[in-house]
Nucleic acid binder design. Sequence first.
DNA 1: TATGAATGAGACTTCATTCAT
DNA 2: CATGAATGAAGTCTCATTCAT
Lengths: 229, 229, 229, 229
Amino acid sequence: MTKKPTKAATPTAARADAKGRAPADAAPASNRATRAAERRSAIVEAAMEEFIARGFAATRLDDIAKRAGVAKGTIYLHFKDKESMFEELVRTVIVPVVAKLNALPPPTGSVRDLVEAFAGNFLKEVIGTRRGDLVRLIVAEGPRFPSVADFYYREVVSRGIAGMRALIELGIARGEIREKNLARYPQILVAPAMIAVIWQSLFARHAPLDAQDMLRVHLDLIFGERRTT
Amino acid sequence: MTKKPTKAATPTAARADAKGRAPADAAPASNRATRAAERRSAIVEAAMEEFIARGFAATRLDDIAKRAGVAKGTIYLHFKDKESMFEELVRTVIVPVVAKLNALPPPTGSVRDLVEAFAGNFLKEVIGTRRGDLVRLIVAEGPRFPSVADFYYREVVSRGIAGMRALIELGIARGEIREKNLARYPQILVAPAMIAVIWQSLFARHAPLDAQDMLRVHLDLIFGERRTT
Amino acid sequence: MTKKPTKAATPTAARADAKGRAPADAAPASNRATRAAERRSAIVEAAMEEFIARGFAATRLDDIAKRAGVAKGTIYLHFKDKESMFEELVRTVIVPVVAKLNALPPPTGSVRDLVEAFAGNFLKEVIGTRRGDLVRLIVAEGPRFPSVADFYYREVVSRGIAGMRALIELGIARGEIREKNLARYPQILVAPAMIAVIWQSLFARHAPLDAQDMLRVHLDLIFGERRTT
Amino acid sequence: MTKKPTKAATPTAARADAKGRAPADAAPASNRATRAAERRSAIVEAAMEEFIARGFAATRLDDIAKRAGVAKGTIYLHFKDKESMFEELVRTVIVPVVAKLNALPPPTGSVRDLVEAFAGNFLKEVIGTRRGDLVRLIVAEGPRFPSVADFYYREVVSRGIAGMRALIELGIARGEIREKNLARYPQILVAPAMIAVIWQSLFARHAPLDAQDMLRVHLDLIFGERRTT
DNA sequence: TATGAATGAGACTTCATTCAT
DNA sequence: CATGAATGAAGTCTCATTCAT
């Protein structure tokens, strides 16, 4: 796909650096460190595609290298071996997700609106995207990569559960949610979303699922049906 | 665990066969066809353990053979190759599940009782058991084995969804379920159960989940909280 | 050299086994165990040639396999990995040498005659032969294979030194050897022989060494010059 | 051990060079040629350590570079490739030895005294030192590096043999040595010393060898036991 | 039918060498 | 001159599959 883009694209700029002073602000500085970072992220990108498509064991480093447009040996400049590549990869991809979770706005409107906004975001950013496939990949490889499962639990699941619980308690306090025991199992709140993620990966071509509509019905179940829409 | 049971149990009979005489009295019920079937099911059993533990690509036929107590070559007398073994295996294991789904008793009591009975059964037979791991295995390998995903969808998922939908519609008709849109998404009904299955595989050691209690809360959400318990 | 000799040479005999009873004593039983042993020794033979020619690190398993007439994978049926192959190889080759040392005849004639007989044997069996090269190989790789050096010291060197010391003490007691301190350093007795081994490996083409004559002169030094020869 | 000494010591000067100005006053004695020579000898030093420790094939240029405190590419400014580095290295290290051999004082005292002095020097300078390991390295790699073996034979062995022969003949002429044939095999004179070198490398930890005492016994054998000591 | 030794393609990983900076 | 990131050939080892017994 993106074969050797950096190397081919910026030889002139690179040479310019060598000749004179640093190109103040004009060129985005395609220096060594930058190039290394670009390569690394090309590898991460390619690796994610391959791991998602084939799983850990069936993925060949050769294919990752080819897709990333680097030589096989280059991978080993960035990662110790295939296993740690997989583990670091998951971390790398998950970190921005965690950042977003942490940057959630404080609850101002109704709880239902909040949850709905959250679900909308999830629909757009996760379900049916590569990020959704990553979730499936973690489910698939988790038992063989405890460190990955641990990381995912610690950084995403436990925080997500905690956040959902807080929302649910707020909803109960405000009288938006009747079922008080729901606070004990925030998993119920997110279960349909997770199922939607998996469904799209596995059964989309047999029976496409209108995830948005399904989540709305689920919220109706929890918050009571809306009058106005 | 069950190492070399077949081999250990019938070496004499086996050798007798090789020489040409019939194993007349030794094991009257254990004729050739029966023994072949026994071997096959030993292989299936062993293969499932290994595939669940390591996934398709990382599982070695050597290990399956050892666990099943047969020689590596024997596997090829029953299966064309590793891939078809995996596909047939999933079919073989799933068939009894389908049979059970089909043998469900006609709805007599309340819908909630029926669903609860069904959930109870699911808890006992699937969550935290090897069958639950099979679900995770299918999620993991589905994209690489479309035929497996297809089979699973056709035999289990679509039937399950249809069955659930019928129950939900009955519940709506009887006034047990208020949320009429639920019939469009029976997935919502089973989502927490699926999540429980996955949770037990991945996060049980971080945060054990009381699946039974969670499912009860979920049913309360759908059917309304029970007065008497 | 000996490419696939077994496989090509004995298919008929092998098939004969399958058809009827075991071929009592006529054919030397080319059964599985025998064939395996033959293969193993072909590998050992080939490996020794290669290791001697190139040293441990520079030897390719591919070349060993080719020379032994087996597939690469076959090596791994007999040896865990390259390192243990090397270690076992040295052991395997050295054992018969040790056996010979142990089977030395009891001292009957003069000590000089005994030592001379021993030296003659050494000349014929070691110097300029592959066994001599093995000595050089051990000298070369010893520091990187402590277990090999240990084994060689324990099985060959320490026994050889002890045996030489006994002979020297006998020689002193009988008045054949004047230098009494020699018993403290049997190494002196064998040093020229060892040097001859190494010399032949390294410098034979620059300056061939008449090892036999040199050893005779050395013995003259120790036992005094012979009157009659 | 001596990590990156060069690099750490002269970064400023080095950078100054790169820009084009002469490092006028900073390091007057350390001009370009000198620094290059220093680098080269750092590489030689490091390479010898590594080659001795691991042998030619198993030594990585990376490790040599690290130990020498230079970048990997720098090695290629001084040596064509790994092989010629090894060959030149041996030459470089051996030259001073040859110089010493040539600078031997003319025989004035008794031959035994001369030989003893020589042996003493050998003990101090070679046995148990890195130079001794170099001998073992040549024994190990000689067959794969004929040019090294040739060089070593021409520069060291043949000269050493010639020198020893001259001494032996002198000893015979003066009546200090009785065994006249010894002149034909000066190897006998040095054999125990060589054995001592090898012994220390391989078996020192199993059975330490008092090389000095052994050599004295050996000389007693050749020159006859001393009255006074 | 059952066996398991043998095979060899193919995977991961290393490392000598190059070259833009 | 010096650097070290990048390369890719080549090596070790694994394992699905075959086939003589």
